[in-house]
Design a binder for these strands. Sequence first.
RNA 1: GGAGGGGUUGGGGAGCGGUCAAACCCAGCAGACUGUAAAUCUGCCGCCUCGUGCUUCGAAGGUUCGAAUCCUUCCCCCUCCA
Length: 303
Amino acid sequence: MGPTGVGKTDLAIELYQDLVINIISVDSVQVYKHLNIGSGKPSTDVLKKYPHDLIDILKPNESYSTSQFQDDVIDSVRNAFQTKRIPLLVGGTMMYFHHLVNGISKLPSVDSQIRLRVKEEFEEKGVHEMYKYLEKIDKNSSTKIHQNDTQRIKRAIEVFLATGKELSKWQAENKKETNQLISESHLIQIAIKPQNKDLHRENIAKRFKGMIDAGLIEEVEGILERKGMSPNSQSMKSVGYRQVCEYLGGDCSLDDMIDRGINSTRQLAKRQMTWMRSWDNIIFLENNSSLFSSVKDLILKNS
RNA sequence: GGAGGGGUUGGGGAGCGGUCAAACCCAGCAGACUGUAAAUCUGCCGCCUCGUGCUUCGAAGGUUCGAAUCCUUCCCCCUCCA
């Protein structure tokens, strides 16, 4: 795992040539078909030669979640073991990794009707009032959630309305549990960090400009034309895609959009680093010339 | 040369005699994270020996108990007329 733009994909491909591994992507955006350029997805040719699990498994108008990811990765990992291959999980979606390692409570799903209703209520009444409502129905959750945190307030209310039971109660009754397959496996957690912070910032800028040159704007236009798509779709909220949508919607100039895209990518990388810093049992490696052999040794020693 | 407008803490930009180390936005830094997570949210953001402390609002003087705010001169920038 590691922040965006440190070279995880290249490393995985290199390892694939030397080891008996299955590459499994841990990436909340690469799961989407057609989100190619902006998600930094490997090219079709590369994917053909070096297959990745959990890429292109959803249409751009679909939603995904941490728990669906849990189910999908477990399937992939199991499949790798069955074919006597080492599963190599590669990606930057830290919460997916986090729940895979630390477990997640089993919670009921909330149907889209209720979610829509809650969303409309939020727009009508505003966060403040909805937070007060949450305090009434689920005091325990409300103390854990900040009064401005729209998304988490929404979720807690949704669960309550859908099931009649408080989210906090669900969580208390269904404690986090790591999947057996994972807890029984010998897990090596490797974090790749950039060798030089300023250089990494520069790389991110170059990378984003490169995406624009490669046709990111056209890619987004094409995606938005698909049925059921709008800039509000979950997939279009991700870094880069959101900014291009803003530009296409006339919110900003091309140059502003590029700046915003670069900044959001940098901020993303920063948040990813924040996750890694407090991560237990993690091996930090710098992205330098010995990275490949270090990772390879770690895998061979532990398999 | 003439007439206006302006120079504010990294950038943008409020403030126009005291409640101003100076709103707000951006950038930056640190952090949180249980089914949207590339999401959402929080804190910090002149300096220090952390105090009714120190130095800041183009520069230098002045008025005033008190100035980023008023006056004078100077230096820049922009617009318009020549």
